[in-house]
Amino acid sequence: MALTKFAIDLYDAEDDRGSQYAIRKFYILKDADQNDTGKADQLPEGYSYGDTIRMDWSEDITYETRNRRDWPHSRKWEVSHAGDVNGNENFNDQAYLRLADTYLLKAEAQLQLGDEAGAAETINVVRRRANAPEISSGEVDIDFILDERSRELVVEEERRYTLLRTGKWLERTRLYNHNGGQYVTERDKLFPIPQKVIDANLTYPMEQNPGY
């Protein structure tokens, strides 16, 4: 659930969606009595119980640094079992439909119809709920809507599909994803067709996607 530095830094200070309750930005070391598990946290060298360990996203995460343990992560799926705190299974419900997603799709349609004021008000419905500052019509463009979708739906939406649909995948992946985004090309908008699928098409030749 590691996020890009870009995604973490998108939030205004008062926006609940970027708070510690939504994105894990620090840990407080607890002894056995303070922990629900009844087990004491393992103390790093130089720390005591009650100390705070803060995450560090001053520099963006890259492929080489992707295994860092001091990087913020989304808490939407954060869970651990008392009997196995190192386990990675998660049984939280996953939202299938989100009202906020519907509002943001509506705002996108309003923008394309030239109704920037309507789009801003639709976005503000979502932002008021999150205690984020309201925006004006002059701030609305497709990039702002995509930023707002990240603020609201990070780790939930199929981001690649959204960026491809809006014609922004190549541009924004190169700009904001430094964990491989610098290597993507126009070709990568499509995935290669598996060779076994091509070979199974006996009645008519199936061409591979361009570039593969």
Score class of each variant (00 low, 15 high):
residue 86 N to T: 11
residue 117 A to I: 06
residue 91 F to R: 14
residue 65 T to K: 09
residue 88 N to C: 05
residue 137 S to E: 15
residue 89 E to G: 13
residue 123 I to K: 03
residue 91 F to Q: 14
residue 126 V to T: 03
residue 121 E to V: 06
residue 160 R to K: 03
residue 74 S to T: 13
residue 142 I to N: 10
residue 160 R to E: 04
residue 67 N to W: 15
residue 129 R to M: 12
residue 173 T to D: 06
residue 110 Q to Y: 11
residue 104 L to F: 01
residue 173 T to W: 02
residue 147 D to M: 14
residue 158 E to R: 07
residue 109 A to W: 03
residue 99 L to Q: 10
residue 169 W to L: 13
residue 116 E to T: 09
residue 122 T to H: 07
residue 106 K to G: 05
residue 114 G to N: 11
residue 156 E to V: 11
residue 150 S to K: 08
residue 126 V to W: 00
residue 109 A to G: 00
residue 170 L to A: 14
residue 104 L to A: 02
residue 161 Y to D: 11
residue 120 A to Y: 03
residue 71 W to Q: 04
residue 102 T to L: 15
residue 124 N to F: 12
residue 83 G to T: 05
residue 78 E to A: 13
residue 136 S to Y: 02
residue 97 L to D: 11
residue 68 R to C: 04
residue 146 L to P: 03
residue 108 E to F: 08
residue 73 H to Y: 15
residue 133 P to K: 05
residue 150 S to H: 05
residue 169 W to I: 04
residue 124 N to P: 01
residue 163 L to T: 10
residue 140 V to A: 08
residue 161 Y to P: 00
residue 90 N to S: 07
residue 103 Y to S: 00
residue 84 D to R: 00
residue 160 R to Q: 07
residue 67 N to H: 14
residue 119 A to N: 01
residue 107 A to F: 08
residue 125 V to A: 11
residue 130 A to F: 06
residue 138 G to A: 07
residue 167 G to L: 07
residue 85 V to P: 02
residue 148 E to I: 07
residue 156 E to N: 15
residue 69 R to M: 10
residue 162 T to Y: 09
residue 105 L to Q: 13
residue 65 T to P: 02
residue 98 R to Q: 05
residue 151 R to A: 08
residue 151 R to F: 12
residue 173 T to N: 09
residue 97 L to T: 10
residue 147 D to L: 00
residue 155 V to R: 14
residue 163 L to M: 08
residue 71 W to F: 14
residue 149 R to L: 05
residue 156 E to H: 13
residue 80 S to Q: 04
residue 113 L to F: 06
residue 100 A to N: 01
residue 156 E to K: 02
residue 115 D to V: 02
residue 142 I to K: 14
residue 133 P to I: 00
residue 151 R to W: 11
residue 120 A to M: 09
residue 72 P to M: 05
residue 129 R to A: 08
residue 78 E to F: 08
residue 93 D to H: 07
residue 115 D to C: 12
residue 120 A to C: 12
residue 123 I to F: 09
residue 102 T to M: 15
residue 81 H to V: 15
residue 103 Y to C: 05
residue 148 E to F: 14
residue 83 G to K: 13
residue 145 I to M: 00
residue 157 E to I: 08
residue 119 A to S: 09
residue 165 R to N: 00
residue 149 R to H: 04
residue 150 S to Y: 00
residue 105 L to R: 15
residue 77 W to S: 14
residue 154 V to P: 01
residue 159 R to I: 06
residue 91 F to K: 12
residue 84 D to I: 00
residue 70 D to Q: 10
residue 123 I to E: 08
residue 145 I to K: 01
residue 153 L to F: 15
residue 172 R to N: 06
residue 138 G to N: 09
residue 146 L to H: 04
residue 159 R to V: 01
residue 132 A to V: 12
residue 71 W to L: 04
